[in-house]
Nucleic acid binder design. Structure first.
Lengths: 120, 120
DNA sequence: CGGTTGTTAAACCGATCGGTTGAATAAGTG
DNA sequence: CACTTATTCAACCGATCGGTTTAACAACCG
């Protein structure tokens, strides 16, 4: 797994358990044990999941006696959104341009070329 | 890897090569060979990457003789954005609420309790 | 102090991943 | 037809993943 930020974030969120943890942390901070309770895996496994989320910058932790409360870090979402929006917009623009071309082609219906391969 | 849609999408984008392919497809459709050219891996490896993107619904393909042009599908981005925005908003709201609480605490500076643990 | 609770570290395991090589398939071109 | 081009399939390989068990560590509680 590439160690760049975006890769870590996407990779972290590729697991449904980790996404669920994020979802629950969105409503309230929680300790490892609290987070582990609903899943039928060991608390160690959940601890690992949280580590992954932490490494991705999605979660931060404080200390409260033996407990290590987890807190969702919202900033990282910006990174994803920025990436996504960029390419979504490009794709949509391209789609619109294609639409325009098709419309134009309908107006003056296919002069010469077969439109199979426009340019090199 | 869980086979649900969101998992496949995030998982697909967790790889930098695949993200780069998406980025390039945002500007123009391209064949497997064209896509493979800049990377120093075999074309088979790139073919696999494209398969992953296709399975995630990020890429669709048509046919042009032996070629299989790849086309970026923008819709899937909505799925991600929706998921992200939802939890980002919750996290931000919570942050704002916390801010409000802290402000209030500054107004009437710590009456009785130690504010260590508010409620069960 | 000893015991309990919360969390992590270490070692291991089967499955999947990203990559390879080699061969097969598909479809134009001489 | 044989030949080149574009793509995929199949088998394999080392690394990583998600999970386990066992043990350690940290900090409170009596």
């Amino acid at each position: 797994m590439a160690d760049d930020r975006l890769s870590r974030v996407f990779s972290a969120l590729a697991d449904p358990t980790r996404r669920d943890i994020v979802a629950r942390l969105a409503t309230a901070d929680a300790t490892v044990n609290e987070l582990a309770e609903p899943y039928d895996v060991t608390v160690q496994a959940v601890s690992k999941h949280i580590r992954v989320l932490e490494d991705a910058g999605l979660v931060s932790r404080s200390r409260d006696a033996q407990r290590r409360p987890c807190h969702l870090e919202g900033e990282v979402f910006d990174l994803m959104t920025k990436w996504i929006e960029r390419y979504r917009r490009e794709a949509e623009d391209r789609f619109r341009r294609l639409d325009a071309v098709l419309e134009k082609m309908e107006e003056q219906p296919v002069k010469g070329a077969s439109a199979k391969r426009a340019a090199s």
